[in-house]
Amino acid sequence: MAFESSLVFGMYSQIKHSLQGSAQGAGPQPQVIIPSAAFSGSIISFILCPSELVKCRMQIQGTDSVVPMSRRYGNPLDCVLTTVKNDGVRGIFRGGFTTLLRECIGNAVFFSVYEYVRYHMHLQLKSASTDHRNLIDVGVGIASGGLGGIAFWLAVLPLDVAKTIIQMTPDKNATRNPFQILSSIYRRAGLKGCYIGLGPTSVRAFPANAAAIVTWEFAIKLLGIKRD
């Protein structure tokens, strides 16, 4: 997560800066934010896909009814090696297309919400006392990051559900088309089925992304990097 976060925030900042050019300070620009965020998401999907496959496969080993003792992995490396042995290198990238979609769309939504909330909150609070500027910046970071995180998962949780099913299904011949999987879920359980796990995901998303944004903005300030 540390590597993934540093990569996505770093790439987003650099691409956004390059695309903005001399138009900095003109407020959020969707034609800059969306491609910057989507490209960053596409790159980190190649890291997230194998790491999440290993994480999910290790997590479902909690009960014998799910995974018999004879088929359990000893550790994450054993999971990787066993997957490569059984399915080839492509096996650890199972669900890669769905992860790519999730990260491109999700990050475009996240950074759009973050940038707009941040911009308009600072616009409303620009006349506030400079004595409380640091406190205001933290509050804006919490609100913009937390709301961005919630928006991310509201937009792409169905894709995450499909990704998990693709990665965990033992049948090698099962479909890897996320839209076919979601269509099947929708027929059986409706929209609620496509958003299974929304509660705990939302509970995690707000504080995790709020903390990430506050830390990121504090680091930018600490390093003396200029922001629009």
Rank of each mutant, 00 (worst) to 15 (best):
D78H: 13
W216K: 07
S183C: 08
L81A: 09
G74V: 06
A219T: 12
L222V: 09
R57M: 02
L157V: 04
F111E: 00
G197M: 08
G10E: 06
F110Y: 15
G25V: 05
R133N: 09
I44G: 02
I43C: 14
C49R: 01
T83R: 02
Y119V: 06
R188L: 13
S40K: 01
G88I: 03
M58K: 03
V32L: 05
A38L: 06
Q24D: 12
Y114A: 00
E103L: 13
S183E: 13
G224C: 09
S70W: 03
I60G: 02
L135T: 12
N107C: 11
V140S: 00
G10N: 11
G145Q: 02
G106T: 04
I34W: 02
T63F: 13
R227A: 12
M58D: 08
L135M: 14
V89P: 00
S65H: 11
I92N: 02
R204W: 13
F46H: 07
V138T: 14
G148A: 07
A108Y: 06
K226L: 12
L198R: 02
C194T: 09
I150V: 15
F9H: 07
A219Q: 10
D137R: 14
Y186H: 13
G25H: 06
N134F: 13
K221V: 07
H120W: 11
I165A: 10
S184H: 11
N173K: 14
R94Y: 03
E4F: 08
G148P: 02
P170A: 06
I60T: 10
V113C: 05
V8T: 05
G193H: 00
D160K: 07
L182I: 08
G146H: 00
I185N: 04
L154G: 09
C79T: 04
V8K: 01
R90Q: 08
K55M: 12
V66R: 11
Y73R: 04
L182A: 09
A26H: 13
A211C: 06
L154Y: 11
Q180P: 00
G88Y: 04
E217Y: 06
V140I: 14
S6H: 08
Q59V: 02
Q14N: 10
L100N: 01
S65V: 10
E115F: 09
V54N: 03
G41Y: 04
F46M: 11
F97A: 11
R90E: 05
L19C: 08
S112T: 12
A205Q: 03
F110G: 03
R176D: 12
S51L: 10
R71D: 13
R133M: 12
D131Y: 14
V54L: 01
S184K: 14
T130G: 08
K55E: 05
T82H: 07
I166F: 01
A38Q: 07
H17F: 12
N173A: 15
L222K: 15
V8E: 03
S18T: 09
T83C: 03
P68T: 05
V203I: 15
T215G: 04
G149K: 01
G10S: 07
Y73I: 01
V203F: 15
Q124T: 10
S40M: 06
Q14K: 14
M168Y: 00
Q61H: 05
I47Y: 13
V54I: 15
I150L: 15
L7E: 02
N134Y: 13
H17T: 11
D78N: 13
Q180Y: 10
G95S: 07
R71P: 00
S45M: 06
A26I: 06
R204K: 10
S22G: 11
